[in-house]
Design a protein around this nucleic acid. Structure first.
Lengths: 165, 165
DNA sequence: TCCGCCCAAGAACGAGTGTTCACCTGACAT
DNA sequence: ATGTCAGGTGAACACTCGTTCTTGGGCGGA
């Protein structure tokens, strides 16, 4: 709390004029992060298009977003476990809604025969973990830039669901 | 430290008869975990066999091991960032060696044309994150048991590297 | 039997934590 | 001009943290 206050140029005690507690501040932070992520994703993916097109859009969006905002995402994933029950109730549904979008894409593709997957709900969690993991190792001065990395993840995700022939 | 001491039935101060500091205790814990993981993996995978066979063995091992020892793995992944420089120097090479095994499998498969991947080093990190993510959601009383989940991950990994036709 | 020596207990330390309180200040509506 | 009030300050609180120190008991070797 002292660090946060210092980084915005006020005293620790002044934070409590805006947030009732550290827990609530964390909940607000994570909730607004998840809402921004959801909005941006819906903007980038939409509901039109084939499962392949939507999976490409989703993957490219998720990877580039996570590369561009690594600290937001890191905090949101890392601190989910330190939310108490009321905070969880506010954040977890947003996270589920996000995952549900990917799961729907996979289920559509599986139903139409374009994807070769037996368990969409497992594969959606697997792909999400795979894509999110990019934040752990990506460096701006690395050999591959964000677009090249995103391309690699798109190809890998497409192959993972058996979309290629 | 008080919790750890309590869970083994001694006082907090008695810990310091065995470990010089909390940092060193964490380093020892993570180092021994990584060594056990590496040994078990080398046992399960080996160097014989085709890239496909080795990838199957690696994936099945990694997923089931992480399902069976979730708390060890969770701690090892979560607390890597809280290791100071000397601790990192002891643990990171072990982690790199583990990933190098997967990367070698992928590179072999790519070289022989059995795998369709353009960036083995990226894909190895992607697959590792995908497999490790199973600890986040797997529950013993879930719809799928560990073997069924492992099968799903094996299929997904194989498809991800383009091993299927 | 006595001597070292692990290894444990218990109290205390200094530093850091989230939070509260009384007080002050400056802008705005009346 | 005056009263209101959101929003700041600085000190203090109760507590937890990792760590240190003194003390003492039990056990094996001489």
């Amino acid at each position: 709390m002292r660090d946060i206050a210092g980084s915005v140029g006020i005293q620790q005690s002044a934070i409590y004029n805006h947030f009732p507690s550290k827990q609530q501040l964390l909940v607000d932070l994570m909730e607004s992060h998840m809402r921004r992520l959801l909005d941006a994703m819906h903007n980038a993916v939409g509901t039109w298009g084939s499962p392949v097109e939507r999976l490409v859009a989703f993957t490219r969006f998720h990877v580039t977003y996570h590369i561009d905002q690594p600290e937001d995402v890191f905090l949101a994933y890392m601190e989910l476990r330190s939310l108490e029950t009321d905070g969880r109730a506010a954040v977890v549904p947003l996270r589920d809604a996000y995952e549900a979008t990917l799961r729907a894409i996979l289920a559509d593709g599986a139903a139409s025969g374009e994807f070769r997957i037996s368990e969409p709900s497992v594969v959606s969690k697997a792909l999400l973990a795979m894509m999110t993991g990019v934040t752990v190792w990506f460096r701006d001065d690395g050999r591959l830039d964000r677009d090249a990395v995103a391309d690699t993840y798109v190809q890998t995700a497409l192959q993972a669901v058996g979309a290629d022939t």
